[in-house]
């Protein structure tokens, strides 16, 4: 029997010097859903992703991915379990080429010995080319990532995640800081890649959210304010008051 949820966040709490950035939060992610998280600045959206992917240590609660407790795992172990994370500011390896950036994320040769003996064969090369086509960078494989535009770096980072083929993909403001043309292309790209996997997206662009979301969660002061379809949360008086009504 298939599980109802692939990710179960329960009673998750983190406090920074007494300030609770995430406070007793519950969140359930179903297989193949695109779950968008919205909320005003400081609502704890990015912190929530940081907690799930192991970047920040939680003060309490539990994050279960299938049956694995992510809170007690290292970042790289969480990645191996099948959770990928894209950061808000594009973080790619500037000193390496686009090809090398993708190659480093190809899920093979993770150990020291594996990395020493890693050989890039035709299968890997084929996969890298395939991903590069998806992210519109097929002509820039030998270019250093430092020379890419902001939007291209965002795409490259998405590509770095795609090549790992994660079961759960977490995207933090994937279209922020992009030009209108880039935005459109990215929306297209995201719509293509969010099929066949679960995705958590943080986004401010409401038009974009309506476009992709299967479910929306509104965070406010580290807690869930409202959850449901876009239509539902848009008409929730609590949400209108703290967020959409501004």
């Amino acid at each position: 029997m298939q599980e109802r949820f692939i990710l179960k966040v329960e009673d998750l709490t983190v406090s920074f010097d007494g300030f609770k950035a995430v406070d007793g939060l519950n969140l359930y992610i179903e297989p193949n859903e695109c779950h968008v998280i919205i909320g005003p600045n400081g609502a704890g959206k990015t912190t929530l992703l940081d907690l799930i992917c192991g970047r920040t240590a939680a003060s309490g609660g539990s994050v279960k991915f299938h049956d694995k407790e992510l809170l007690s795992m290292r970042e790289d172990q969480i990645v191996h379990a099948g959770v990928g994370r894209k950061f808000q500011t594009p973080s790619v390896y500037e000193d390496l080429t686009v090809f090398e950036n993708l190659e480093l994320n190809y899920p093979k040769g993770y150990s020291v010995f594996g990395a020493l003996t890693f050989r890039c064969d035709d299968t890997i090369r084929g996969r890298i080319t395939e991903i590069a086509e998806t992210i519109f960078l097929e002509d820039m494989l030998d270019e250093k990532a430092a020379y890419l535009s902001h939007g291209q770096k965002q795409w490259l980072e998405i590509g770095m995640l795609l090549i790992q083929d994660p079961e759960l993909l977490m995207l933090d403001e994937p279209v922020a800081g992009m030009s209108v043309a880039e935005r459109k292309k990215t929306a297209e790209l995201l719509k293509r890649i969010i099929t066949d996997r679960s995705v958590i997206v943080i986004e401010h662009d409401m038009g974009f959210v309506v476009d992709i979301a299967t479910r929306v969660t509104v965070l406010h002061q580290g807690q869930v304010l409202s959850e449901g379809s876009m239509e539902h949360v848009q008409n929730d008086p609590k949400v209108v008051e703290v967020y959409l009504g501004h």
Binding site: D95, L96, E103
Partner: peptide, 28 residues
Amino acid sequence: KSKLGRLLRAMRDQPDRVRFSGYNVASF
């Protein structure tokens, strides 16, 4: 020349990102 060499350069500039590429930075 190995992938480990590229990983080292990646680690120098973006140690956090390397962890999320699935590598245990400390062991390298």
